[in-house]
């Protein structure tokens, strides 16, 4: 449970780091551990997609808007989930300003465990270096004011990109042992990129690993990923935020056992049931609905969802996932505004 008084005023960075440790905060931090990039923000700082995914200065400029324009407590320079896959050799579709870059998963680069190769110069690939340089630029610009969160893809998500979703999921059923071997090999990419981002200056790392309830069961998460995610906690020495989209309440108990600092959860799970599932074993981040609320509705609707999260004791409030690029700024700025307003009237523990 967040203690909101009598805690001295904190910087955004202090606030996020305290919430990740489930320690008292002066107010609930506003965070999106995935992305708040929008077309409006791209225009504002002249950092459009796809350029902002491939140029460090543009990446840092766009990431900074989360703090400077929206009033969030964190910045996240890795907007998409494709930097590593590009560096591993996947075929890419970089798209345009109003569309997300994606991996051409129908043209997989690996078919078998022996195909898996983490290139020796993996960390020197331009799409990796871009992220590392952007982190350095953000640290230089903001010092310790704002929490800089990086992102390193988990091996399950890399499996989708490198093997193709369908072949990877079928392999998990046909040959679970081989799938484990694949995950063991791919996790090296997760750890290497995570450690490099720590060297560059991140305060925490998001680990997207899309073992979502829309695709696989909670037991799948336990069998294939729970122990590996615990290993990441030991191998990558900053607070880790696991991100899995979709319905996940059936695996939250397992997630809470990994030792990860936080879980970024989707609006398909209510704040109340999610809090009940994890208790005080892990912080929760989320879960303002993207398509129906942030994208389609008005600030009053956003406010209602923020309050629902705050009243459920969610440690960090923010969008459920990377937001649609056409989301209006007025709905995004409403999140920190509603959080501050709520704390003005509930200035003590909740």
């Amino acid at each position: 449970m967040n203690q909101t008084s009598p805690v001295k005023a904190m910087t955004s960075r202090e606030r996020v780091l305290a919430a990740l440790r489930r320690e008292p905060v002066d107010r609930t931090p506003v965070v999106n551990p995935t992305s708040v990039a929008t077309v409006e923000l791209m225009d504002l700082v002249d950092a459009p997609f796809p350029h902002a995914n491939r140029d460090a200065a543009a990446m840092a400029r766009l990431a900074a808007t989360s703090y400077t324009e929206l009033g969030f407590d964190s910045v996240m320079p890795v907007f998409s989930i494709i930097q590593e896959s590009s560096a591993l050799g996947c075929k890419m579709q970089w798209e345009q300003k109003d569309n997300w870059p994606t991996v051409r998963m129908s043209e997989p680069i690996w078919q078998d465990v022996d195909d898996i190769r983490i290139p020796n110069d993996y960390l020197s690939h331009p799409d990796i270096v871009c992220v590392l340089d952007a982190i350095r630029l953000l640290r230089k610009e903001f010092g310790n004011d704002v929490a800089i969160i990086g992102k390193t893809m988990g091996p399950w998500s890399l499996g989708y990109h490198c093997f193709g979703v369908e072949p990877f999921l079928l392999m998990s059923l046909d040959d679970p042992g081989k799938t484990m071997q694949c995950l063991e090999r791919m996790k090296e990419a997760t750890v290497q990129f995570g450690l490099a981002q720590i060297d560059a200056g991140v305060d925490a790392l998001t680990v997207p690993d899309h073992a979502t309830g829309d695709l696989v069961s909670g037991e799948y998460y336990k069998r294939f990923l729970m122990d590996m995610h615990s290993e990441f906690v030991d191998a990558i020495p900053v607070p880790l935020i696991l991100h899995i989209c979709g319905r996940t309440v059936d695996r939250m108990d397992y997630i809470a056992q990994t030792g990860m600092a936080a879980f970024h959860f989707d609006s398909k799970n209510t704040p109340c049931e999610s809090k009940e599932a994890v208790g005080d074993r892990i912080s929760l981040v989320g879960n303002i609905n993207n398509p129906e609320t942030l994208f389609s509705k008005d600030p009053a609707d956003v406010r209602r969802e923020v309050i629902q999260n705050l009243e459920s004791g969610i440690q960090m409030v923010g969008p459920e996932c990377a937001i649609p690029l056409q989301t209006r700024i007025e709905n995004l700025v409403e999140i920190p505004k509603a959080v501050r307003h709520w704390h003005d009237h509930h200035g003590h523990s909740h």
Binding site: E166, L169, L170, L173, G213, L215, S217
Partner: peptide
């Protein structure tokens, strides 16, 4: 009814 998930459905589709 979430008694099976996509890998199982893919195998059935195959």
């Amino acid at each position: 009814e979430a008694m099976i998930f996509v890998p199982e459905v893919l195998a059935c589709a195959r």
